[in-house]
Design a binder for these strands. Sequence first.
DNA 1: GACGATACCAAGCAAGCGCTTGGTTTGTAA
DNA 2: TTACAAACCAAGCGCTTGCTTGGTATCGTC
Lengths: 207, 207
Amino acid sequence: MSQSDILKALIAENLVSDPKGARGRLLQEAARLFRDKGYERTTVRDLAAAVGIQSGSLFHHFRTKEDILKAVMVETIRLNTAIMQAAVDEAGTPEQKLRALVRAELESINGQTGEAMAVLVFEWRSLSEDSQADVLALREIYEALWLDVLGTLKAEGALLAEPFVVRRMLTGALSWTVTWYHPERGGLTLDGLTDQVMAMLGFSPAN
Amino acid sequence: MSQSDILKALIAENLVSDPKGARGRLLQEAARLFRDKGYERTTVRDLAAAVGIQSGSLFHHFRTKEDILKAVMVETIRLNTAIMQAAVDEAGTPEQKLRALVRAELESINGQTGEAMAVLVFEWRSLSEDSQADVLALREIYEALWLDVLGTLKAEGALLAEPFVVRRMLTGALSWTVTWYHPERGGLTLDGLTDQVMAMLGFSPAN
DNA sequence: GACGATACCAAGCAAGCGCTTGGTTTGTAA
DNA sequence: TTACAAACCAAGCGCTTGCTTGGTATCGTC
């Protein structure tokens, strides 16, 4: 199942908005603006201009500006959870599963959904506490996937550190790539970067 | 040389402000507020109230609000560069030097200067491009320390991945601890966390 | 004990903010 | 063609923002 198939399935279930529709386009532009300028520095007038409507018309689609931020985050998590799940299911050994997870998360962070992923990390504090709780609940499924794989590797002796610590370190390390990794400028490919991450964890790249 | 001795030396050289003075107290409160609420959500009225003056009086000490943010970052980098330098100098083997660096950075992020370190990571985009360039120049000395130690370990065969990739991964991983590591709630000590990081990199804790 | 510099206050300005309002256009289906 | 809802516009309200202004304490120094 390809990533675009996963996206289509989620759109059909109404779990994420079609990027071709009005709502989906707005969320995409919002993610880009929020990443580039930050949530606070992005005005509703900026958002409206990005999709070619008046600022007041935004509030026909979303109740508040914060609702837009929350929607960006929720839909991003839904999409990525499905992508990660597929990546794990398709891989064989635990080490291959870990590699698939790392590779998929790097792809999410640095690929098409990169803007939204960066927003998820860097604009977290701009969400109200209530919204934070809602979004956190969604993230748990996602995190369980990782802990499961890391736990198996630890039991096998392939991992020295604690799974929950490793996962948190990886969250930071992989998210941070968005600030320095620019494949279009040449250098490391996505697979090469994945190899480096695995090597850092002590797994040799010959797999 | 203890951390407080380093601080005193820097104050004497006028490279960082005395936390007991007016300017130093303001910077400390600013770091706390910027971390807790974010730079944009923190108003000059908040800052003034935190040190017990009127909002207009702030502009006697700093030309703009952004100058306050920049000062927080600059002084934090100066202090931490000195601390890291001392940590490296005191350690013996390259592996011990790496451990000392990890431990020192974790201490910076989660200890007294934690507020300012978090600001450095999460409020980066709120700096104007010119200020970003100034601050980046300061960071280079700091980064060179890490790359030197990691390069030696790589040459020794103790490290599989590329030093510059490892450093960037560690930057993300260690910074991210600020979002989840709370030693006061029990659990992992700082030394325990350092051990976990080293174990993740494939170094056994018996050192 | 007069003087200048430093630190502060009280008041408020101009601009920009999120969001509301009342009304018009557009799409859809009978 | 009519009816109705969804999508949008034009205008602006009430409030907050960073910062300025003109004036007043407080201080060390000669």
